[in-house]
C-alpha cells in the first residue's frame, strides 16, 4: 500500500509545484514551483525503482537525470533572468511578454 501512498505523495508534490508555477508571478517563485515538480518526479522514480524494478538501475538513472535537470533548469533560469533583469529590470513574467503571438 505504501507504494501507492508514496506515489500520491509524489503527485501531491507535483501538483503543489504546478500550482506554484501557474499562480506565481515572480520568476524565482515559478522556478521554485518547477523545482518542487522535479522533486515529485524524483520521489516517483525512487518509488517505482523500489517497488517495481529494484534489479534494474534505470530508476536510479532517472533520478540522476532529474537531479541534473533540476540543476540545469536553475542555472539557465537564473542566467536568463539575470540577462533580462539587467536589460529591463524585469522580475515578473507578466512584464516579459515580448514573445507574445
Amino acid at each position: 500500500m505504501t507504494f501507492e501512498l508514496v506515489l500520491v505523495l509524489a503527485a501531491g508534490l507535483f501538483s503543489v509545484g504546478l500550482f506554484g508555477a501557474l499562480s506565481q508571478q515572480s520568476i524565482v517563485m515559478i522556478m521554485m514551483g518547477i523545482e518542487l515538480m522535479i522533486g515529485g518526479v524524483i520521489v516517483a522514480a525512487a518509488d517505482f525503482w523500489h517497488f517495481l524494478a529494484p534489479a534494474a538501475a534505470d530508476g536510479q538513472v532517472v533520478i540522476v537525470v532529474a537531479v541534473v535537470a533540476m540543476a540545469v533548469e536553475m542555472a539557465m533560469g537564473f542566467a536568463v533572468t539575470t540577462a533580462l533583469y539587467r536589460a529591463r529590470q524585469v522580475d515578473t513574467t507578466d512584464m516579459a511578454r515580448e514573445l507574445k503571438g
Binding site: 507504494f3 501507492e4 506515489l7 500520491v8 503527485a11 501531491g12 507535483f14 501538483s15 503543489v16 504546478l18 500550482f19 501557474l22 499562480s23 523500489h50 517497488f51 517495481l52 524494478a53 529494484p54 534489479a55 534494474a56
Partner: peptide
Amino acid sequence: ALGISAAVFASLTGAVFLVDWPQRRGSPP
C-alpha cells in the same frame, strides 16, 4: 491554477489507484 493543479492531482491519484501496477521484479542489490 488551483483548478488545473487540483485536476492534475486528481487524475494522477486516480491513475495511481486505477492502474494495476505489475509485481516487483527482481530484488534490490
